[in-house]
């Protein structure tokens, strides 16, 4: 038990050593390999990683909505004093939508096309409260105007196809926040939206966070969004957290080669047109994880030990953790002394 796990009292969420695998005919796909992190009340945590890094899977697991054949193989998830992994499905149904709610990447498909906005909003509200239909409708209308939808009473009667993508994402946010959840999981909430709408939705999420004090987990592959919204950032690669820290840590005191690579991928806003720098190579095969560091084959600073042994987490600053063998080299053997158990 590390210090982190012990002072779990003010932690809303405490995930330790989470392993998730998908048992496919081709073999065990190890999507998440030993992820540990905590989230405080009202905190905004960004999870960044490329496709297949396990970022969505790890949050789906905490809703207990992993699709077959996915399974939590090891680890623990504590949310608000409850051990999520042992909750029966009836209990989970009470937690979902009430204590933890979720918005998804594509607002065009995440609302049911054959029911009105009102129907879907009221359904959520009444599921988790004893409100009457008309009270729930009133609450729905309030939520819609709160997220900046004009003429909310009329919108309640409309079907999703009558609304634009940005509007639908606002509806999703209204729905997600309608029961005042303690945690909002936003799985790439702006990825499929126009840039201008993206900015609006981010501003809205910022505003909602200030007004409701909801903790947010923001999953994205866009580092720009992270700076907008997050207190803390976790960078994931091959089902592991490779670096985590404050936004400043990640941007200005970048430690892990993968994070550096990600930052280098961002187009630079300078006079001179520099060519974009992609990270060479392909993501690891989750069916057959390499020994040692998952990023080793794509890393330009790869050493012999990287191919042999998995790097432990190194505390490189206050609350800034990086999982890379380079730190032993940089700090001499002292680097090992900073070894930090859980990150």
């Amino acid at each position: 038990m590390s210090a982190d796990a012990l002072d779990g009292r003010d932690h809303l969420l405490n995930i330790q050593n989470l392993h998730i695998s998908f048992f496919t005919p081709a073999g065990e796909v190890k999507a998440v390999n030993g992820v540990s992190y905590t989230l405080r009340k009202g905190e905004v945590l960004g999870i960044v990683g490329e496709s297949g890094s396990g970022k969505s899977v790890s949050v789906t697991a905490l809703m207990k909505l992993l699709a077959y054949p996915g399974r939590v193989v090891d680890g623990s998830i504590w949310f608000d004093g409850k051990d999520i992994l042992v909750q029966p499905s009836r209990e989970m149904q009470k937690i979902r939508g009430k204590d933890i709610s979720m918005i998804f990447q594509d607002p065009m498909t995440s609302l049911n096309p054959v029911y009105t906005i009102g129907n879907q909003l009221i359904e959520t509200i009444r599921r988790h409260s004893a409100m009457s239909n008309s009270a729930a409708r009133q609450r729905g209308i309030e939520m819609l105007s709160l997220v900046g939808i004009n003429n909310p009473a009329r919108r309640m009667r409309q079907y999703p196809h009558a609304l634009s993508g940005g509007m639908r994402q606002r509806v999703m946010i209204a729905m997600a926040l309608s029961c005042s959840p303690k945690l909002l999981i936003a799985d790439e909430p702006t990825t499929s939206l126009d840039v201008t709408i993206q900015a609006q939705i981010l501003a809205l999420m910022k505003k909602m966070r200030q007004e409701t004090g909801t903790a947010i987990m923001l999953i994205t592959h866009d580092l720009g969004i992270v700076t907008e919204l997050c207190d803390r950032v976790m960078i994931m690669y091959a089902g592991k957290i490779v670096e985590s820290g404050s936004v400043e840590d990640i941007y200005y005191r970048t430690s892990h080669p993968y994070t550096k690579g990600l930052l280098d991928c961002l187009p630079q806003n300078s006079e001179e047109r520099a060519p974009l720098r992609p990270i060479e190579g392909n993501p690891v095969d989750l069916l057959d994880l390499p020994k040692g560091c998952g990023f080793a084959s794509r890393c330009d600073k790869c050493m012999k030990i990287c191919l042999r042994e998995t790097p432990p987490d190194f505390l490189v600053g206050d609350g800034h953790v990086s999982s890379c063998w380079l730190h032993t080299v940089q700090n001499g053997q002292d680097g090992r002394g900073n070894h930090h158990g859980n990150g």
């Binding site: 909505l65 009836r90 149904q93 979720m102 594509d106 498909t109 995440s110 359904e123 599921r127």
Partner: peptide
């Protein structure tokens, strides 16, 4: 695999409502 079924489950609806309300009509 439709997202709106994921939404319905994430809202805390029991599976029977997810299937007979949200999936069936589609």
């Amino acid at each position: 695999g439709q997202d709106y079924l994921k939404t319905a489950r994430a809202k805390g609806l029991p599976e029977i409502l997810v299937l007979f309300k949200h999936a069936l009509k589609n």
